[in-house]
């Protein structure tokens, strides 16, 4: 009896303290999920006044287009992604591509001749950074040699925080199931709520 009370006490404390410790992450993830699906204007990189700068770098001929963009990024001393879809050649045949990372977005203009690259730089607001913290843990692995160390720290923070969040939710359900288990209502409710998205995904996966 005492042990059971101690265990329940521990679970309750873990739920409350763990939940409070991960509240910021939970809100960030909730916000970025909203942004990923609805693409609101306010979370886009701040348009404001971009700054322009130029830098001369020597780039060797490269067959792989994406590898070339990453090499340019490293040579310019930047870090971040070069999304494959943010890339175009304008009507004059000049190539432009984007490098993006939380806090900054760059459009790089590749010179047709010479070695002077022009960079248009946008700073982004806190909301945009909050959104970018979401894929950061997974996506910033190949952000280049100039990636600051704290990016890796964030990645390692996210995994334990994710586990804490799962525990917090499970404890919440555990206490509720304990109360409603005899009525079978608990299992049915949980079963329906859990299986609906899983079944839907399987359907999408199999049927298309």
């Amino acid at each position: 009896m005492v042990e059971k009370r101690k265990r329940n006490d521990f679970l309750e404390k873990f739920h409350v303290y763990g939940g409070l410790a991960s509240v910021g992450i939970l809100i960030i993830f909730s916000f970025s999920a909203y942004v990923h699906q609805h693409h609101p204007k306010f979370a886009e990189p701040r348009e404001g006044k971009p700054t322009y700068w130029e830098q001369s770098i020597d780039m060797p001929e490269m067959e792989d287009h994406h590898a070339f963009k990453l090499a340019v990024r490293d040579s310019l001393g930047l870090f971040g992604h070069a999304p494959w879809w943010e890339d175009y050649t304008d009507s004059l045949g000049v190539m432009h591509f984007m490098i993006t990372r939380p806090g900054k977005q760059y459009w790089v203009t590749v010179p047709e001749t010479g070695n002077t690259y022009m960079i248009k730089e946008h700073g982004s607001g806190l909301l945009n950074i909050a959104n970018q913290l979401h894929p950061l843990s997974a996506g910033m692995q190949n952000a280049g040699e100039h990636t600051p160390a704290y990016t890796k720290v964030w990645r390692f923070v996210m995994v334990p925080m994710g586990l804490v969040l799962i525990m917090v939710v499970l404890i919440s359900l555990h206490f509720w199931l304990k109360r409603s288990i005899r009525k079978k209502r608990g299992w049915i409710t949980i079963g329906v709520l859990a299986s609906a998205p899983i079944l839907l995904f399987i359907m999408i996966w199999l049927v298309g």
Binding site: A21, G24, I25, I28, R101, P102, A130, L133, V157
Partner: peptide
């Protein structure tokens, strides 16, 4: 709880400011 909440809010905020 107040300390845990402060940590929970400060953690992402700290990273956001670092990137800024």
């Amino acid at each position: 709880g107040g300390w845990f909440l402060a940590f929970g809010i400060a953690l992402p905020l700290f990273f956001m400011l670092l990137y800024t």
